[in-house]
């Protein structure tokens, strides 16, 4: 029991920050993000015995959090595609507020969820293509295509924005 508690505390220490940031980009609300992380860890505690390989803990926790978020939406009877990070502007104080970063954040907000999610996993936490494929349960090539399109879309949006700025 003692070992389980120590192991669990290590998991909380190591990954709660990452899970919070990921949750934030899934739901766009601070309070909901923390709730999601709390629920994730409660479930993880319950099924900790099923985690055989410590190295897969981060992916395992991320998968649980994704699932908790999906359950939240199902409870609200909303479509997953309806996720809009509308609350972000009101919580700006938590972000880098330089204009170019704000423009990029806006572009990220407009990115379809299926492109934004793998990008968050890759850029923010360094998940590789295989790990992302495992979390989403999709082929590795599909992940590669989505990441490719995500960056292309961001580049296009940012180029468009630059053109607009230069015309003003």
């Amino acid at each position: 029991m003692k070992d389980k508690e120590v192991f669990y505390a290590n998991l909380v220490e190591a990954y709660s920050g990452w899970l919070y940031r990921y949750a934030y980009w899934l739901c766009g609300e601070k309070a909901t993000s923390e709730d999601l992380v709390q629920e994730t860890y409660l479930r993880a505690w319950r099924f900790l015995g099923s985690l055989k390989d410590e190295k897969s803990a981060k992916s395992w926790l991320t998968t649980i959090l994704r699932r908790e978020n999906a359950r939240r939406f199902e409870r609200k009877q909303l479509e997953y595609s309806d996720v809009e990070l509308d609350t972000l502007p009101s919580e700006r104080e938590d972000f880098d507020t330089r204009p170019e970063i704000l423009a990029l954040r806006n572009a990220l907000r407009l990115l379809p969820v299926k492109y934004r999610e793998p990008l968050v996993l890759q850029v923010l936490e360094g998940f590789n293509l295989q790990e992302i494929a495992g979390i989403f349960d999709i082929p590795r090539n599909t992940v590669a295509t989505r990441l490719h399109r995500a960056r292309q879309k961001l580049r296009k949006q940012l180029e468009g924005e630059e053109e607009l700025q230069s015309k003003k």
């Binding site: 669990y8 709660s16 920050g17 919070y20 709390q38 972000f95 990029l104 923010l124």
Partner: peptide, 24 residues
């Protein structure tokens, strides 16, 4: 990618880990 990382970064609330352990 560096800019995306900056754009995605959000401050983690203080004491989050402690609250998780307490909640459990």
């Amino acid at each position: 990618d560096k800019s995306i990382h900056q754009a995605l970064s959000v401050a983690v609330p203080e004491g989050l880990a402690a609250r998780i352990l307490l909640n459990r």
